[in-house]
C-alpha cells in the first residue's frame, strides 16, 4: 500500500517544480514505473488520480510509462527481459544476473503553461 505515499511524493515534487517556475497549472506529467521497482503501476496510478483532486495536477493528463525489466547474465552476458528480480539466465541458466532496467521510478517531465 505504499503507492499512496509515493503518489503524495509525486504531487509534492511536481508542485515544488511548478512553483519554482511560477506555473499555476500543470497540464501533463509523465512518469516512468519500472516493473522491478517495487511499485505496482496500476495501484500507483489509482492513488495518484485519487490524491490529485484539489492539487496542482488535478486536471493534468497522466502518462504512466511502464518499463520492462532487463537482466544481463553475469556469466554469458546475454540480455533478456526480466519478469522477476531473481530470474536466472534463460540461455545458460546461471545466476545472478545484473538488472539493467526496470528499477525506474521517476518523474520524466511535466507540461506547464
Amino acid at each position: 500500500m505504499h503507492e499512496f505515499s509515493l503518489a503524495t511524493e509525486v504531487i509534492n515534487l511536481v508542485q515544488r517544480e511548478a512553483q519554482k517556475r511560477n506555473a499555476p497549472v500543470v497540464n501533463e506529467i509523465t512518469i516512468e514505473v519500472g516493473s522491478l521497482s517495487g511499485v505496482e503501476a496500476g495501484a500507483f496510478e489509482s492513488a495518484l488520480k485519487l490524491l490529485s483532486e484539489g492539487s496542482i495536477i488535478e486536471n493534468a493528463g497522466l502518462n504512466i510509462l511502464r518499463i520492462n525489466g532487463i537482466g544481463v547474465c553475469k556469466t554469458c552476458s546475454i540480455e533478456f527481459e526480466m519478469m522477476q528480480r531473481m530470474e536466472s539466465c534463460p540461455v545458460c541458466h546461471a545466476f545472478p544476473s545484473e538488472i539493467n532496467g526496470g528499477n525506474e521510478f521517476r518523474v520524466i517531465s511535466m507540461t506547464i503553461e
Binding site: 511524493e9 515534487l13 517544480e17 517556475r21 521510478f105 521517476r106 520524466i108 517531465s109 503553461e113
Partner: peptide, 16 residues
C-alpha cells in the same frame, strides 16, 4: 504553443 514541456528526470523518492 504556450505550453512548455519541462524535463525533470527526478527520482520520486528523491526527497526521502
Amino acid at each position: 504553443t504556450d505550453q512548455k514541456v519541462i524535463s525533470l528526470n527526478m527520482n520520486i523518492l528523491s526527497q526521502n
